[in-house]
């Protein structure tokens, strides 16, 4: 069964606004996740500079030895990225679905300040459901 290890959401200036861990081994504290998120933000920007042709919008998929990282950048510049087992399918649709949840439960929340860390209970609940693998399989259909 393919697994999702973690999910990050970073705002347009590279600050981590949401982090969810679903079974990463080893130490990964708040400081580490913040650093990793802003490092990813800069790597994403550099990859656009190095493109051999025009119109590059940054890394979409990074294939490492033990995981895959899928990244989705929304039009306002918020980046969603998910770390999963190598070869997990339907991650693009999952990211799009998470973006939908973000617009519905975070952006439409009147108490949410834009670009700030996300603390919305409804978003958490729906996200947990979405990340469960049977739900991921359903999105692929």
């Amino acid at each position: 069964m393919a697994a999702i290890y973690s999910l990050y959401i970073i705002n347009k200036s590279g600050g981590l606004i949401f982090y969810k861990d679903c079974g990463t081994k080893g130490r990964m504290d708040t400081n580490d996740s913040l650093r990793v998120a802003s490092l990813w933000h800069s790597m994403h920007a550099i990859s656009q500079q190095l493109s051999p042709v025009n119109g590059c919008s940054g890394i979409e998929l990074l294939e490492a030895d033990t995981f895959d990282l899928h990244c989705f950048q929304s039009l306002p510049g918020t980046k969603f990225f998910v770390v999963c087992e190598p070869g997990t399918p339907h991650m693009e649709s999952l990211l799009r679905y998470i973006y939908e949840l973000y617009t519905d439960y975070v952006l439409k929340n009147p108490f949410y300040e834009i670009e700030m860390p996300i603390r919305c209970e409804l978003f958490d609940i729906n996200l947990t459901q979405a990340v469960q693998s049977d739900r991921v399989a359903l999105l692929g259909r």
Partner: peptide, 23 residues
């Protein structure tokens, strides 16, 4: 620089290995 930093990123992110150093 991109490859160097991406490598330190993947080494830190590795979800399977429990003993990884700092970023």
């Amino acid at each position: 620089g991109l490859l160097f930093s991406l490598k330190s990123l993947t080494a830190k992110m590795d979800p399977v290995n429990a003993d990884k150093g700092n970023l």
